[in-house]
Write a protein that binds this DNA or RNA. Structure first.
Lengths: 343, 343
DNA sequence: TCCATCCTCGCAATCGAATGCAGAACCTAC
DNA sequence: GTAGGTTCTGCATTCGATTGCGAGGATGGA
């Protein structure tokens, strides 16, 4: 029965005994077409599994109906960053975009040259772009944002910069983390992370803020630690061997925190007894380290929803502004409250 | 100087003083156009940042030049699976596809209904589909594979099934893991994982194979453990409390293994002293647990490259077959060789 | 000077869907 | 019976790039 394969709108129209234009309008639900005709055509389409050709439709409507999501899965010295944070964010973005009828074009970028974003934007393959993480590309982002509105960035809000961001208050997050360690009696704090991007830089700022307020800024140190697990571990191991352990560690991310946990364990340093550790992101795995990781939580689901919402509103012509969420401290085993430094 | 904005091929052609067809052929490198003309037009295009309209081009060429990658980021009881394995795979796929000039359309699927794949395939939005993980959708995969060739699946090879797969020999992997535990003197082994999909089922098979060969099948147990970290931890905790600990654990994935490590630590059970643990996947983080996780490694980079290669060859008309890699045992701390069960 | 030949290039149709405008069909009212 | 309205459809064009076929120009040889 399915003999004549229906691939184009005209096929469908012929089958229904109407013209292509009528079929088009019928499928679009245009009320100018008699209801009966509309329903008949819709049914035919369903029966024959007919779907409009997206390329043709988008060409005519001068749009692509897809959004690029750029992940800085950069080759940090050749190693792909595989932070679980990204999958989670990606999953939520995919959901939100699909729900709104958009396709998600995934793009991995190695920000070696600085025109990557302009190229993507000008390619015309997408209606808008979401960048996850600023990395060290703030300049490139600003340059493009100045002339291209449908661009949204997950990351730190930077006053005076052109690109619109959604993210949590990283400085507050850093402060919360340090404050917590101070609250449980730690005094010699260290921040582990490489402030190559503004997010980490702000977390580090917040960390220092708290230390200063508390009057322990002179004993607080910031240690440059890469964000990829293996490099992080090496950096941390070297630091511990050279300078000994602090009694409280704020890590730039949960992955860094986990590397720290391992480096500490290898050296027989007790957590949280000798050193308390606070991570950042509240990745799913964070609750499942031993001891479970105290961390700063960002609401990723809400972040993804907001990114998509703002982007589509921008696409609709609205003028949009940055949004910042409040991070939340989640206390778990690595900063067990009762525990005091063994020293 | 950039006054006349060049958006279409005809704009460019007008600027160059040739016709659109010549411009098209020039950009395509068609040798029928004089080399000088070709170069002049290419330069103009570069100077004005001109890029072809993909929708129009793809419409004309009857293709989409994009590949869908489907992730079973299923709502396992509402929780997004955030296994780091996925990001890594995704990253490599993105690289490989981009390199071949294809876009990567990311699609998250909650396989509640069973027509999801057919819908995607028939939508005409993509030239081919890569599915990562079979989950419990083998039937749906087979049904579509029977009529749609450019479909590739990362997962277990199932003799007699229609869909083409790329993956590692899960049965061998499971056997390697169990064998290793037996080699270091463990006898009461447990497999932690839920064989809802064929991959896990085969790993479990291999596990049992080894136990049988070694004559310890009667003391070996298989414990149904979910794959999401939090559920896994709950399942494992319950099992340990009910039945006590085995002296060797083969986990269905590294995430499960990490949950096991935590559950064991919480109960004061020593690793590898009391229990040796082997994971699966060799996720980046696996090397950074404490103790570092012994695991079965799958070469994800090679897997991704193979998936893309086979898919494009299938697209080119070649008949392709499944490919299976050999997994490799990576011995780390959780099965420290010297350690014997305390018992 | 004229014609054959080789290069280059342009005309026009095509891919599939959307839409402004005009025309067909049908009905009511005078 | 015809004018005036409604309501529904179809024609033809458009989006931007590709390509078969044929035309135009330059060049060389006679």
């Amino acid at each position: 029965m399915d003999r004549p394969s229906i691939n184009t709108l005209s096929d469908l129209a012929r089958l229904a005994g109407v013209s292509a234009s009528t079929a088009s309008r019928a499928l679009a639900g245009n009320p100018v077409i008699a209801r009966a005709t509309r329903e008949r055509i819709a049914e035919l389409a369903r029966d024959h599994g007919f779907q409009l050709n997206h390329a043709a439709r988008n060409l005519r409507l001068r749009r692509t109906q897809s959004i690029a999501v750029v992940l800085p899965l950069g080759h940090e010295t050749g190693q792909p960053v595989s932070d679980p944070f990204f999958v989670t964010m990606l999953g939520h973005l995919a959901d939100a975009l699909t729900e709104r009828g958009y396709d998600l074009l995934l793009s991995r970028v190695i920000p070696a040259d600085d025109k990557w974003l302009a190229r993507l934007v000008d390619s015309g393959r997408v209606d808008g772009v979401i960048v996850i993480g600023q990395s060290d590309q703030v300049a490139a982002l600003d340059r493009v944002a100045a002339r291209y509105r449908p661009l949204l960035v997950w990351g730190a809000h930077l006053p005076g910069h052109a690109h619109v961001t959604v993210g949590s208050d990283n400085r507050l997050g850093g402060r919360l983390a340090a404050q917590h360690l101070l609250d449980i009696g730690r005094r010699r704090l260290a921040f582990f992370g490489l402030p190559s991007g503004p997010e980490i830089a702000q977390r580090q700022q917040g960390f220092m803020d708290a230390c200063t307020t508390f009057g322990v800024a002179d004993t607080a140190v910031t240690v440059p630690v890469h964000l990829a697990a293996d490099l992080a571990h090496a950096n941390i191991a070297e630091y511990l061997d050279r300078h000994g352990a602090p009694d409280g560690i704020v890590a730039a991310s949960d992955v860094v925190a986990m590397s720290a946990l391992r480096a500490l364990a290898e050296r027989g340093i007790g957590v949280p007894g000798d050193v308390a550790v606070v991570g950042y992101d509240n990745v799913t795995l964070a609750a499942h380290t031993s001891p479970p990781l105290t961390t700063i939580s960002q609401d990723i689901a809400r972040g993804a929803a907001t990114l998509v919402d703002l982007l589509l509103r921008s696409l609709a012509g609205e003028t949009i502004g940055s949004v910042m969420f409040e991070p939340r401290l989640i206390v778990r085993g690595t900063s067990g409250c009762g525990a005091a430094p063994s020293e």
